[in-house]
Amino acid sequence: MTISLFIEQILNGLQFGVMLFLMSAGLTLVFGVMGLINLAHGSFYMIGAFAAALFAELTGSFLIAMIASFVAALFAGALTELIIIRKIYKRDHLDQVLATFALILLFSEGIRWIFGAYPLYLDIPNSLSSSFNLPFEIIYSKYRMMIILVGIIIAIILYFLISKTLIGIRIKAGQNDREMIGALGVDVTKLYTIVFSLGAALAGLAGALIGAIQSVEVGMGEPVLILAFVVIVIGGIGSIKGAFVGALLVGITDTMGRFLLPSFFSYFFDNASATSIGSSIASMSIYILMATVLIFKPSGLYGVKK
């Protein structure tokens, strides 16, 4: 194993983590501010990817496709919030789980109805399809580098949005005391719609960015949703900082686990069983990470103890 391969894998972990952050940011805010468990968050990821694929085919422009993904998920989020979600904020978590589970069925089958059963085409633009040559003979994909940059920029924007702007202060106040900000004359309903749609839009953008290098298909959101929940639980629910740290932890653990564990086991077993055992444990690694974190910090790394 060479140093350059090792660094390249760290970068891959980082890129995966940053993408998870885009997914988790909305989820953690929606839970922190509105107290809503939103299983349908993965559907916005899917909607973003499908919108991007559609607009990429219509216009041929990758940038327009990305904007379309953001806008489509924003609208889908707003619409869902207005029609259904706002009716269940005050409900039990269980009702929320059931309703948003039903939304998954609705969105997935709805998309399949419209776009058909086979995956759609979405590819990255030519200008980003080559690789960089970094120091230490590291070769790294321009597109993945761009994902890392976009993710970090969005993280910084979100950080300022929440700590410096009026709406951020309201969001934070909402996390601490929901009744109070209403009493202070803040339009809570509008605030909730904004937060929910913004979270959905970020998920949609993540779906489009990732759909371009993976695949755009029905059901693509749910595995990512589970990972995003893992992230926000590790980071501590409601904390953007926690989501960021948790996302990077999960991204790097998963990537490095897949990379290192099989070669680690090859010291003990023959090659075929080592790769098999190694990859079995690698696929469990993030759940082991999460269970360990929660055993020692029951409210996640940056969570507030209630």
Binding site: L5, N12, Q15, P223, R258, F259, T275, S279
Partner: peptide, 21 residues
């Protein structure tokens, strides 16, 4: 090299890096 990946995995950056090496 011989690799088994996670079922349902969609990102192969780590595997492709190994192939390159």
């Amino acid at each position: 090299g011989e690799l088994y990946t996670k079922l349902g995995q969609k990102d192969y950056a780590a595997e492709i890096a190994q192939i390159r090496a």
